[in-house]
Simulated scan of single mutants.
Amino acid sequence: MKRLLPVLLLAVSAAAPADEPKLAADKPEGKLELVATFDGPMPTGVTVSHKGRVFVNYPRWGDPVEFTTAEVRDGKATAFPPDINKYDKSRPGETLVSVQSVVVDPADRLWLLDTGSIEFGPPSGPKLVGVDLATDKVFKVIAFPPDVALPTTYLNDIRFDLRKGKAGVAFITDSAQKGPNGIIVVDLDSGKSRRRLNDHPSTKAAKNFLPIVEGRPVMERKPGEPPKHLALGSDGIAISHDGKHLYYCPLASRHLFRVPTDALLGEKLADEEAGQAVEDLGDRGFASDGLETDDKGRVYLTDYEHNAVLRRTTDGRYETVAHDPRMLWPDTMSVAADGHLYFTANQLHRQKNYQNGKDLREKPYALFRVKIDAGPVLLTGAK
């Protein structure tokens, strides 16, 4: 058997021959560290600035959410930025509605990806908000028009290349449960955005996908309704260390895909032609929520089926970076300048929508980190 599943790899005995390669989790960098816990709403995203500031977000999925983005200081989360963090339904374009992802870009600026969606409803005020961390002030708000943020759109995660165009570009996944999935490309200078790989098979959930988490099949299970297979499309996203490829994966799939960024950025390239450039990197044997990359050209993937984080090496092999029973649904990751990989674990599969109306989550939720031998991808174009 040429390739063992990650869950089997973890069963290798500590008494293995000395000349047998060690797993990443057997190395010092595999030690899991608890950074912070959360007793309020469940967090999804995390990002770390170049100077070590940690930010998280809480989407409005049903939990009471006082503020949708926060900075974590000394283990405590406080509203950030405070001036726009109080949701005002009469001004959805001017206040934060429901932030799904927070990401620090290569220039050390914080971006907030606001779905504009309450409990996965139609978006109202979907936008991308840039915050200057030198002043903690909003410097840019990019609203998404209705032909980009469709009535079914759910803006999920984002990555940046600041070398493209006048001010850089952003790539965003649309993980809509119903309606077309795809990648949204944003010009950070003009604020113009457009959909790419719209409804392409690589961005869609696998048919009848059935993940196994904590030994049990996960389906959408609501009282009085027949169970439904998970249908979330393009979710995790990461950009290669050289900016040449964008990696992405549907949440309801075990396949990893990548596409040349030039195919997404080409103004004259039809979407069908861009789709022909997509590569299927194969069935990984596990399903992922978040993706991340490092400056050594490796791709990190959460493994929500096995409470783990794995890493795809430059030659296509997978190795375990962290594995722990406390890692219940590892969600979003961030490679930080301090040489750690940060990630949230939020028990997403224990929500009532998957448990016949019963909320089985047990607080607190967690933010972990693990030491790695690499740094973040910084596509700034700076010499």
Rank of each mutant, 00 (worst) to 15 (best):
F55E: 02
K268V: 08
D19V: 12
V104P: 06
I172R: 09
P21T: 01
F209C: 09
D105I: 11
L155R: 11
N181G: 13
R196G: 08
N208A: 09
L32T: 12
D235S: 13
T153Q: 03
V299M: 03
L341C: 08
E225M: 15
N57S: 14
W61K: 13
K27F: 02
G165L: 14
A176K: 05
I158R: 06
A274S: 15
L150F: 00
G52Q: 06
P126W: 01
G243W: 05
L367Y: 07
R3D: 08
T320W: 08
N356L: 06
F286P: 11
L265V: 03
G168A: 00
P41G: 02
D147W: 00
R196F: 06
Y342M: 00
K86Q: 12
A322W: 03
R53F: 05
K2T: 15
A205E: 07
P250L: 00
K137V: 04
A337L: 11
D108N: 13
A287G: 04
K140Y: 03
V278D: 05
A24G: 14
T332F: 03
S175K: 11
Y248H: 11
F286N: 09
L128C: 08
A15L: 13
N307M: 07
P145I: 02
V104F: 01
L341A: 08
L265C: 00
V54E: 02
V56I: 15
M333D: 05
P126T: 09
Y247V: 10
G62M: 09
Y247L: 07
R317S: 03
E272D: 14
L348H: 07
D271H: 03
H245Q: 04
L155Y: 02
Y318S: 09
R3N: 09
I183F: 01
T152R: 01
T95N: 10
G168S: 07
Y342E: 04
K51H: 15
A18F: 05
G282Q: 04
R312F: 11
S193V: 10
G52R: 10
K363V: 08
N85Y: 07
Y248S: 11
R284I: 00
V129H: 03
E305D: 08
P325L: 00
L281S: 14
P28T: 05
V131K: 00
R258F: 13
P180N: 08
V35M: 04
K222M: 15
A15G: 03
L281H: 09
P217I: 06
S124P: 08
R91D: 11
D39R: 11
A206T: 14
L230N: 12
F343Y: 10
A16F: 04
K2E: 15
K27T: 13
G297K: 11
D147N: 12
L150Q: 00
K371S: 13
N208I: 00
V104L: 04
P106Q: 03
G121H: 11
